[in-house]
């Protein structure tokens, strides 16, 4: 299993896309945090978490990374040599899940670094001090949300082998459908909304009390990963490799 995970990490290191995604995370999270701090939009209750929440916008890019880890193989046909070397497909997909988790943690750290490297000195000039325990918790939650997003990406990829299809589906669901459900939600009482996958993921770094608590959000997100991944793995085991 170690060999398979290392191989998956090597796959990520030997192409350019992950680097591009990491750069995009720096830019997007950096801008989002700057906008939030600049607009004085920090609640006094938990400013650290508000900063993490702003930086979390780019976690969709971690999800894309997870999707690429699976769908690149189908797009370029490398799934053939991959399954030749390791015919136990569930092990290959599990290795991808682990590798994506590791990569998600790394870009999560990057996002946290950028976020607080901008926020801490900025707020310090106003005589505000950040740092200490609250910041550590916020960073941890932020990194967790990136890792989870990457895991969801792998799970989506195992279900939708087409790269375009999987990316479009992820964007459509997390950036269009769920926000719409929340936007239109005033018309109906949708008490189930906090249980949607994107909302569960958001709960990790949000102070919004309409969402679940962070631990519940974490557990529910893991459950989504588990269900989607299991379904995708079963499908991959049953289908021909192409």
């Amino acid at each position: 299993m170690t060999g398979l995970v290392l191989s998956e990490l090597l796959k990520l290191r030997t192409i350019r896309a992950p680097l591009g995604l990491a750069l995009a995370v720096i830019v997007v999270s950096g801008l989002a945090v700057a906008a939030t701090v600049g607009a004085d939009a920090l609640e006094s209750s938990s400013r650290e978490l508000d900063i993490a929440d702003a930086a979390e916008v780019s976690s969709i890019l971690a999800m894309i990374l997870g999707i690429l880890l699976v769908t690149n193989e189908y797009r370029h046909g490398t799934i053939t040599p991959t399954f030749l070397v390791a015919p136990a497909r569930e092990r290959v997909l599990t290795a991808k899940l682990i590798a994506a988790g590791i990569a998600g943690v790394l870009i999560g750290c990057l996002a946290a670094l950028v976020a607080f490297a901008i926020a801490i000195p900025w707020l310090a000039t106003d005589g505000d001090s950040l740092g200490g325990g609250d910041t550590q918790v916020a960073v941890l939650r932020l990194v967790g949300s990136f890792a989870l997003a990457a895991l969801i990406g792998v799970a989506v990829g195992t279900l939708i082998h087409s790269q375009i299809g999987a990316i479009v589906a992820a964007f459509a669901w997390f950036l269009v459908v769920e926000p719409l459900v929340w936007g239109l939600g005033e018309l109906v009482d949708w008490s189930l909304r906090p249980y949607l996958p994107g909302s569960a993921l958001d709960a990790l770094v949000s102070t919004d009390d309409e969402l679940l608590s962070a631990p519940s959000g974490l557990l529910l997100s893991l459950a989504y990963v588990g269900v989607l991944f299991a379904a995708g793995t079963l499908l991959t085991l049953r289908r021909d490799a192409d």
């Binding site: 191989s7 090597l10 796959k11 030997t14 192409i15 350019r16 896309a17 690149n72 370029h76 046909g77 490398t78 799934i79 053939t80 040599p81 070397v85």
Partner: peptide, 15 residues
């Protein structure tokens, strides 16, 4: 069956 952006050597290393 290759990723076009990966070098031949890295393709073999991955395997």
């Amino acid at each position: 069956n290759f990723h076009p952006g990966r070098s031949g050597r890295n393709h073999l290393r991955v395997l």
